[in-house]
Design a protein around this nucleic acid. Sequence first.
DNA 1: AGGACTGACTTGAAACTTCAAGTACGAGCA
DNA 2: TGCTCGTACTTGAAGTTTCAAGTCAGTCCT
Lengths: 172, 172
Amino acid sequence: MKVQVSSRYPPWMATRKTSRDARWLTPDELETWRALHEMVVRLPAALGSQLQNDSGLSFIEYYVLAALSDQTDHTLRLSQLAALANSELSRLSHLITRMEKRGFVRRAPDPSDGRFNIATLTPSGLNHLVEAAPGHVAEVRRLIFDALDERAQHDVRTAARAIVRRVDEGDL
Amino acid sequence: MKVQVSSRYPPWMATRKTSRDARWLTPDELETWRALHEMVVRLPAALGSQLQNDSGLSFIEYYVLAALSDQTDHTLRLSQLAALANSELSRLSHLITRMEKRGFVRRAPDPSDGRFNIATLTPSGLNHLVEAAPGHVAEVRRLIFDALDERAQHDVRTAARAIVRRVDEGDL
DNA sequence: AGGACTGACTTGAAACTTCAAGTACGAGCA
DNA sequence: TGCTCGTACTTGAAGTTTCAAGTCAGTCCT
């Protein structure tokens, strides 16, 4: 049974609608925002649940392992990892603690500068990543690349970058 | 300081690369996926933090209030709310419990069918939403609509819908 | 009528994230 | 040399989400 959602302004919006800096969205923008919103919520949920079911890894855990495996020495500073995983440092620190307990990474102070801490991928962590990767990649392909032709893929990339640039401008 | 990430196949991928159903991503696809991934993580984080700072609401709480306010009787079944908020029922139930404590919604059994429960927006909840909306909408506009011209907006909408359709196909 | 069954929701515990301090190292400087 | 400062990280508590049962109302079947 379908729930009705309006594309018109709710009554309580009426008075704001014309005010200078609180411009409401046009019906067309609203539609776009709804589509984007749903994608932004459901795509990570779908990818995360494939990973969780098939490999016992969360989305972010997978990308932490992937980022480490990308380095020739399988090592990164926690702060670098946090940036690559789009995560805050505190969250990452807890996460590394848990992954350390599972034997996927090791933590050590950076020998060249004691302020930093580095995480290193263990063989077992690499192995787990290697097992998880094909299934994850297949899901990325199925959900994204099979759904979009080349032009659409290009458009999405450009748009995503434009939005991220705006987000970056926000937190100076 | 920039961390180097490769756009080539990691060594451990080599043997899988040509195998039938575990096709790795092309460098071009990888770039697109990275851009989309970052957007998908950071856009909700940015919107959520604006809402949290300015109105003490999380992203999902805002959209629960918004969905309720969209109904003429300011009422929805929990399962409908869960679907509209792209959330699982259990999460929504906990969330409604907390919002009930804050006085934003009320919970009651559906008089017409005791299996359902309905949530109703309180005046205080509506008021909170009305206060929060302009700031949130302004942020949506800044991050998305100011960043994309009309064609790009249209492309994004189409692509987002195509991806969501795929996600839907996944969980039959 | 009665019994199995389904779908909607609740609940509690465990896992995870966020928030607010706190600690520690090194840089810059008196 | 010792002081102050900033940055990187850790930690614990509080808040939130997920997971696995459990409850309960109506439906279907006999």
